[in-house]
Simulated assay, not measured.
Amino acid sequence: MAAMNEVNWLSAEEQRIWRSFLAATSLLQERLDRDLQRRNGLTLVEYAILVHLSEAEGRRMRMRSLADTVIVSKSRLSHQVARLERDGYVRREDCMEDRRGFWAVLTDKGAEVLRAAAPGHVAQVRKYLFDQLSQAQTAEFGEIVTTVERRLRDSSSD
């Protein structure tokens, strides 16, 4: 490891990979977001909120846990949930165990919009990501992103 005042610069190949990774993730998120908005009137973050609520026990999660799961700030989550609440897809409930906390709850209307959005979203994910990779590349990519995610989550206090 380089000393504190030394910079361990990226090699030309590492720089190329890093920049390609940034561009690919940005382009993928932008295309998926645009498609969801066009087809279903949802942003990618709103879709993720609905997905995580649909998978949660009782279709409900604490707002703090939901923010951590969707990987957005609490303020951004609050804004997104307010929009979903306005559209009738989610409702907030007081948390009796913690008077300061709230539950986000997926409504039947929210579950229906998610069911309608999911097939098109999955088709786009497949088109822009998995159809571009061989089975071996998919397995390797899975290992790579899982390793990076795990290490980033383990070192979240850095």
Rank of each mutant, 00 (worst) to 15 (best):
Leu66Phe: 04
Ala12Thr: 07
Thr25Ser: 14
Ile71Phe: 07
Val145Leu: 14
Leu53Ser: 00
Phe102Met: 09
Glu14Ser: 06
Asp98Cys: 04
Leu114Gln: 03
Thr146Asn: 13
Arg153Ala: 12
Ser156Gln: 10
Gln135Ser: 14
Ser156Gly: 03
Glu14Asn: 05
Ser75Ala: 07
Ser26Phe: 12
Trp18Glu: 12
Leu152Pro: 05
Leu106Met: 03
Phe130His: 06
Arg153Asn: 09
Gln15Asn: 10
Thr138Ala: 15
Gln15Thr: 14
Asp98Val: 03
Asp154Ala: 15
Ser156Ala: 13
Asp158Pro: 02
Asp35Ser: 12
Asp87Cys: 04
Glu93Cys: 02
Leu44Gly: 06
Glu143Met: 13
Arg126Cys: 09
Arg59Gln: 13
Glu30Lys: 10
Leu133Pro: 07
Ile49Asp: 04
Ser65Asp: 14
Arg92Asp: 01
Arg64Met: 05
Pro119Gln: 00
Leu10Arg: 00
Gln37Ala: 06
Cys95His: 05
Lys74Ile: 06
Ser155Ile: 03
Met96Asp: 15
Ala23Leu: 10
Ala12Ile: 09
His121Tyr: 15
Leu27Cys: 09
Ala48Gln: 11
Leu129Glu: 07
Asp108Tyr: 01
Glu14Val: 02
Ala116Val: 05
Leu152Asn: 09
Ser54Cys: 02
Trp18Pro: 06
Asp94Val: 03
Leu106Thr: 03
Arg76Cys: 04
Thr43Asp: 05
Ala23Thr: 10
Ala23Tyr: 11
Pro119Gly: 00
Arg126Tyr: 14
Arg64Gln: 06
Val145His: 07
Trp9Ala: 13
Met63Lys: 01
Leu44His: 10
Met4Cys: 07
Leu152Phe: 14
Asp98Ser: 00
Leu44Val: 08
Asp98Ala: 01
Arg76Lys: 13
Gly142Pro: 03
Arg151Thr: 10
Arg151Leu: 15
His52Tyr: 10
Met96Leu: 15
Thr138Asp: 06
Ala12His: 06
Val51Lys: 10
Ala12Glu: 14
Gly110Cys: 01
Val51Trp: 07
Asn40Ala: 13
Arg59Gly: 03
Gly120Lys: 06
Phe102His: 15
Ser75Leu: 05
Val125Gly: 07
His79Ala: 13
Asp154Phe: 04
Ser11Thr: 15
Arg126Glu: 15
Ala118Phe: 11
Leu32Trp: 08
Gln135Ala: 15
Ala82Gly: 04
Arg19Gln: 14
Arg59Leu: 01
Val72Ile: 01
Leu50Asn: 01
Gly110His: 04
Asp87Phe: 08
Asp35Ala: 11
Val81Thr: 04
Glu143His: 13
Asp35Gly: 08
Phe102Cys: 05
Gly41Cys: 00
Ala111Pro: 02
Arg59Ile: 00
Ala82Phe: 04
Tyr128Met: 12
Glu55Thr: 05
Ser65Ile: 04
Ser157Ala: 08
Asp158Ile: 08
Lys109Pro: 01
Ala56Arg: 04
Asp33Lys: 02
His52Phe: 09
Leu66Thr: 03
Ser26Glu: 13
Arg126Asp: 15
Val145Thr: 15
Ile49Ser: 03
Thr25Trp: 00
Val45Cys: 01
Gly120Ser: 08
Arg64Asn: 02
Arg126Ala: 13
Trp18Arg: 12
Ser156Lys: 11
Phe21Gln: 10
Leu77Trp: 02
Asn5Gly: 01
Arg83Ala: 12
Ser78Ile: 02
Phe102Trp: 10
Arg34Asn: 12
